[in-house]
Design a protein around this nucleic acid. Sequence first.
DNA 1: TCTCAATTTGTAACGATTACAAATTGATAT
DNA 2: ATATCAATTTGTAATCGTTACAAATTGAGA
Lengths: 142, 142
Amino acid sequence: MTVTVGDFLKSHDIKPSYQRVKIYEFLKNSKEHPTVDVIYSALSPDIPTLSKTTVYNTLKVFIDKGIAMAITIDEREVRFDAEIRMHGHFKCYKCHQVYDFEMADQTADVDALEGFDIMERQLFYYGLCEHCNHKLKEVEEQ
Amino acid sequence: MTVTVGDFLKSHDIKPSYQRVKIYEFLKNSKEHPTVDVIYSALSPDIPTLSKTTVYNTLKVFIDKGIAMAITIDEREVRFDAEIRMHGHFKCYKCHQVYDFEMADQTADVDALEGFDIMERQLFYYGLCEHCNHKLKEVEEQ
DNA sequence: TCTCAATTTGTAACGATTACAAATTGATAT
DNA sequence: ATATCAATTTGTAATCGTTACAAATTGAGA
Ligand SMILES: [Mn+2]
Ligand SMILES: [Mn+2]
Ligand SMILES: [Zn+2]
Ligand SMILES: [Zn+2]
């Protein structure tokens, strides 16, 4: 009854090659919104012949077929996410981690965009994550 | 009584060179969120010796001093904005224009980010702008 | 086993950005 | 007015992420 990654890819019109399955599994299980380099470096040991071009190509296929998205929360790096339901992203200035957060499904539609057809939304927040924020406070309290 | 661009730059600890004044004026008067290339191409006729490196350097100074910001609403191009008060951006899939929109000052702070220190926000919306949306509807009605 | 299209691979090309050193500018002192 | 000197600007080369492309490989079906 469990749906395999292969079946999932097939159901989205993507032929489940070995590389595609491995890349999708890595992306789906990852919480870190990895870059191409991170994905490549992580899978390279298991798939010694893997080419970085394949990672680029595969991610492009995933995006075209709607099972992944690119996240440019920082202009210096493109990250990827297999979670495509609507959610926001928070990037910590200190530890550079990118966190997911839930957001109200229909962010009160903006008056100024009357007549516009809003098809996609990205919320990018920046600051100090819980962890880094706590550590900072401890230092201040000394 | 009117404050010149030069005075404005000085008040932000930026020496108002000819190039900096011209670049700031162009950015401030522009509604289009121009890229480095657009800025360079627009000013080049007036400042024949202008170097693209200067445009890069100057925008970096403006950002460091807090009078401009970079907008990466599309991973393939970095745009710049002299409007630094909080506002959202909408990019049209069809005409590729980037529109400003006002947003509630304190977007209901997200429960999931309890303990996080949110210092900056970017809202990127995508879809069809009023203009392109209307044209599409006209075609559909035929 | 053969065939053939899809996929993967490696390399080269591309383009935006940055590094860097030399040239220029402009404010200040003499 | 001229000299000085640090800040700014400029042009070129280097860097690096991404894309183009052609050859090699894969694997499903005949
Ligand atoms: Mn995410
Ligand atoms: Mn804007
Ligand atoms: Zn952190
Ligand atoms: Zn439009």
